[in-house]
């Protein structure tokens, strides 16, 4: 499972102060779905999926996603932010197995 938690963040280039920009991120994660036994009964175990994604910009929260197993494997998320100053966008993913994955990307002004 060495690939779990690999993150890519895409921020636009040529940003000007005051622009509302769109950020997109992807995390490698199995987002395990519920399995059933031969009788159709749900197999009870701790399925590993991401429950929460948070994004901050310049240290301030922008968006938080609460998620379920209805979200795709290797999920991608998009959100907007108002670019007020150059600085980092940080995205954090938390899963049901205690995994916490973070990555940052910098908003740079043209």
């Amino acid at each position: 499972m060495s690939d779990i938690g690999k993150i890519r963040i895409r921020v636009p280039s040529n940003v000007k102060a005051g622009d509302v920009v769109r950020v997109r991120c992807l995390v490698i994660h199995p987002m395990e779905i519920v399995q059933r036994d031969a009788q159709g009964k749900i197999i009870d175990r701790n399925y590993n999926y991401i429950t929460r994604v948070t994004a901050t910009y310049l240290g301030k929260p922008v968006v938080a996603f609460d998620l379920t197993q209805s979200v795709s494997e290797n999920p991608a998320f998009s959100f907007a932010l108002k670019a007020t100053a150059p600085g980092p966008v940080k995205v954090t993913f938390v899963d049901t197995h205690g995994g916490k994955y973070e990555a940052t990307a910098d908003i740079a002004f043209a």
Binding site: M1, D3, I28, P30, I33, R36, D37
Partner: peptide, 15 residues
């Protein structure tokens, strides 16, 4: 990525 468990729908798991 390929080492991740291949979790599919239950029917496939049975197969």
């Amino acid at each position: 990525m390929r080492s991740l468990p291949r979790l599919r729908w239950a029917a496939l798991a049975l197969l």
